[in-house]
Design a binder for these strands. Structure first.
Lengths: 253, 253
DNA sequence: TCAAAAGTGTTTTGGTTACACCCATGC
DNA sequence: GCATGGGTGTAACCAAAACACTTTTGA
């Protein structure tokens, strides 16, 4: 539990260094053991979980702020990170919560102000990230997409909007470089796509399509040790991958 | 030209009713005589043009704010209006401009603060809109996409981002209901698409595809008066149109 | 040796592209 | 009547979907 003193101190500091009324929330996706994961934080003062978030420093570009917030929660930097929506309902603040509203006078309590939040979503390598709680949270950890805890505020809306966006992106952008390890097999990559889309894909058509994009390098090695036939390993061709990110994978009209 | 007194008055009022650090800019597209148009404002104090914009009231949802701003500039309400990007560079403010920076002390001058701007784009019927300047502008008018004046601030970036978004949307969403008059011919609708995309489309394939979407009603009348064969008139099937907006026009994967 | 996973191919199909022909109207 | 724009149909093409066969490996 945060004390009144701690909250006052955090608030006074925040007012000094951050822009008022603007926050950033990140939906951080990871992939592990065939399951899609989201990074979440268990609040100290409130009974629920939330997405990693933060504020924008007074002279900081918003993309830099999002990167900083993500780096603080995971230790990783320079990953796929993209704004996807702004959440600006007037009641998306913490005034309803006694802890935030009553402990410190509302005007003086930065965190009880109204915040318009810019939603970012990130794709990161599960093993690269070291989940790290912030001052307001007791736990920071990966949660399975199929087993999500109750959300605080409008964070469920932010999460579902991010997932919808990710699914859309999948149709016209390559995705995977930031979610997969350096080397991976085609079935592993397929599993990622199936997990994001929530449905099965044809093994052979998937492979042909993926290879058709020209963003994969087939490595001479195979992944041994598993039962059954050993699958080939692949890595992303970063140059072509970046190009595909810009160009898109297919054109309409 | 605005006087110092006017600016002070506007600023004091703005501080009272608006959220600090958050602005909204609208890219309003219209279509007239086969040309794509954007609504723009000629600044009183600065030598350049800008997009219609404004701020968010302290307890107002951002979508409502965008609608209000659009309605104030055009007199129309309830049109297609969608946020598409947030512009958050730290130097996107008016501190460089003597008028805004020197005339009134920076802290007291709301308009010289740093603003993070939420970009919205709108599609409106050219004839429904009555362009109306705001306090800071001497002119509010439609400008042709092929003949754009110099932009202030980062409004050129906002505009081009909006146009890119519109072109993308075209691939998987129906567009036209808000840009065309109630009744229109197929060649007229095609002209809209060609103008947005900046390229010619095949007459027959366009017609087939459009009809295939099932969002058009073919009316018994034809448009007489023009030279050559009289084309049929169409209207949008609003119900199917709305459904298509939600579902999208084509699916990937 | 057999089940299960992986590699590689072919057929089918549906949508898009390209193109041809006919009709109406004003000059 | 003829140039121009508009309505309608069809062949060609291509990419995605559906499907079959072979290979490898551990149990």
């Amino acid at each position: 539990m945060l004390t009144k003193e701690e909250l006052e101190e955090y608030s006074a500091e925040a007012i000094e260094i951050y822009l008022d009324h603007i926050s950033i929330d990140c939906v951080v996706f990871g992939f592990h053991e065939g399951q899609m994961k989201v990074l979440m934080l268990k609040s100290k003062n409130e009974d629920g979980w939330q997405l990693p978030g933060g504020f924008v420093q007074k002279r900081e570009p918003i993309d830099v702020a999002a990167n900083r917030i993500l780096a603080t929660r995971t230790g990783i930097d320079e990953v796929f990170l993209q704004q996807f929506h702004v959440f600006g309902a007037p009641d998306r603040n913490r005034q309803h919560n006694e802890m935030y509203a009553d402990m410190v006078a509302k005007e003086k309590n930065f965190f009880a102000h109204r915040f318009i939040s810019i939603g970012y979503y990130a794709l990161v390598d599960f093993f690269d990230a070291i989940p790290t709680p912030d001052e307001f949270s007791e736990i920071c950890t990966w949660r399975d997409l199929n087993d999500l805890p109750p959300f605080l505020l409008d964070h469920e809306l932010i999460f579902t909007t991010a997932l919808d966006t990710l699914r859309l992106q999948l149709s016209y952008q390559p995705i995977g470089y930031n979610l997969m390890p350096k080397e991976f097999t085609m079935p592993e990559l397929q599993k990622l796509y199936e997990t994001i889309l929530g449905k099965k894909l044809d093994r052979r058509n998937f492979q042909r399509r993926m290879l058709g994009f020209g963003i994969l390098n087939k490595l001479p090695q195979t992944r041994k040790g598993g039962a059954h036939k050993a699958p080939y390993l692949y890595s992303f061709d970063l140059e072509n991958y970046q190009a595909a990110l810009k160009e898109g994978l297919k054109s309409g009209w």
